[in-house]
């Protein structure tokens, strides 16, 4: 039914796809660490060497009742519900920054438990709902 030429081409195309998808698969596993936009507090807890000069991002949830605002800085705790890290930041936080919401802080470590942020990004979660519904859930 199919001519020899067509069969050959189909085989070639499937081989190309097989090759490319395995290439992506291996790339994904070797680059996995570098593809991540931020580290979690657990990643930092588990890492052995701490470079205080290295600038990177740490992300997670802002712990409940942990935000302290004074004249100089904003202090809060980022948690991934296994480990946590204290963050200090001087500057204006985004509108959506609040307790029990996702946050990403860019900056460097002072020590394993203390992070000095140069920039704060609010991470929005995947939940979309009208405000009335949220109030109902709260009640």
């Amino acid at each position: 039914m199919l001519t020899k030429k067509v069969k050959k081409k189909i085989i070639l195309i499937s081989l190309v796809f097989l090759f490319l998808s395995s290439a992506v698969y291996f790339l994904y596993f070797s680059l996995n660490k570098n593809l991540l936009y931020f580290k979690t507090p657990t990643d930092i807890f588990n890492s052995e060497d701490i470079n205080v000069n290295k600038i990177f991002r740490v992300g997670g949830m802002v712990k409940k009742n942990s935000i302290i605002v004074n004249q100089e800085e904003v202090r809060f705790i980022i948690t991934d519900f296994k480990n946590e890290i204290s963050v200090s930041y001087k500057g204006v936080v985004p509108n959506l920054f609040s307790e029990e919401k996702g946050v990403i802080a860019e900056g460097s470590l002072k020590d394993k438990k203390f992070f000095i942020a140069k920039k704060i990004l609010a991470k929005h979660d995947e939940n979309y709902m009208p405000p009335e519904l949220k109030n109902l859930i709260k009640e």
Binding site: Y37, P94, N95, L96, F97, A122, H124
Partner: peptide, 8 residues
Amino acid sequence: PTWGTWWA
């Protein structure tokens, strides 16, 4: 307005 940055 949401994240606080235009691009990441």
